[in-house]
């Protein structure tokens, strides 16, 4: 079988990987901000619950979390497993895991903002929401961009973990094509796929960083 044919067999999986990637990102970016606020909440109950959540998400393997999300409803409530739910489980698992990482990035960015920015905003009469969205957030985004890029690159590679609960994404196809053809080529193709995907991520993030370099903090 030609490499081209193998690529063709794997291409539907590539689309799945890309889908997981974008859906995770779309839900995680805002959810991470909410978690970050929980982590910095004045109310100690909310703060401690969020802290525990982040600790669990960061302290246990993503693969295990995917198992729990996918098999949990079945083992606990005997809800039958469906292919449809498999997809939801992948997205839910990735989102709750990555939200914890993004929350910590947001929090470090927010906490690194000088107090003077808040004070200047307060004296000028900005309310809390204006202060956050107009003054603080744009600067936080600039500050955290390098860490966000790192996290996104990790996410690209982590999409392959969906394979663990039997979701047919690129990596699982690579494995089956490779087994059927007793060939290394599918693995090489998948390596190139992740590599090129991450080159694109780095390129895009580089553009964003450049776009924000019109001012210095």
């Amino acid at each position: 079988m030609s490499a081209f044919k193998m690529f063709d067999l794997m291409s539907s999986g590539m689309l799945e990987s890309i889908k997981i990637f974008f859906l995770t990102l779309i839900f995680t970016l805002p959810l991470g901000m909410i978690v970050a606020f929980g982590r910095m909440a004045k109310c100690s109950l909310i703060r401690n619950i969020t802290k525990l959540y982040i600790a669990i998400m960061r302290g246990t393997p993503l693969m295990l979390q995917l198992f729990v999300v996918y098999y949990g409803p079945y083992y606990l409530f005997k809800i039958p497993l469906t292919t449809e739910y498999r997809f939801y489980a992948v997205i839910i698992g990735f989102v709750i895991n990555y939200a914890a990482y993004f929350a910590e990035i947001y929090r470090s960015g927010i906490e690194s903002m000088p107090k003077g920015q808040y004070e200047a905003a307060k004296v000028l009469g900005y309310n809390k929401i204006q202060t956050f969205f107009k003054i603080i957030l744009p600067q936080v985004i600039k500050r955290i961009l390098p860490s966000v890029t790192n996290e996104i690159i990790t996410l690209v590679k982590d999409t392959s973990l969906a394979f663990a609960i039997g979701y047919v994404e690129m990596f699982s196809l690579a494995k089956s094509v490779s087994a059927a053809q007793t060939s290394m080529v599918p693995f090489v193709i998948s390596g190139v796929f992740y590599f090129v995907f991450n080159l694109l991520v780095a390129f895009v993030m580089g553009r964003v960083e450049k776009k924000m370099s019109y001012y210095k903090i």
Binding site: V123, G125, K134, Y215
Partner: peptide, 30 residues
């Protein structure tokens, strides 16, 4: 709050706004 203004020792300008926007944003949006 609108009766007074404060000039800080270390300016505390908004670095992501142009000079003009630093001046006019609060009068317009506050």
């Amino acid at each position: 709050q609108g009766y007074f203004g404060l000039v800080f020792q270390n300016f505390n300008l908004f670095p992501h706004y142009t000079v003009l926007k630093n001046l006019e944003d609060a009068p317009i949006h506050v």
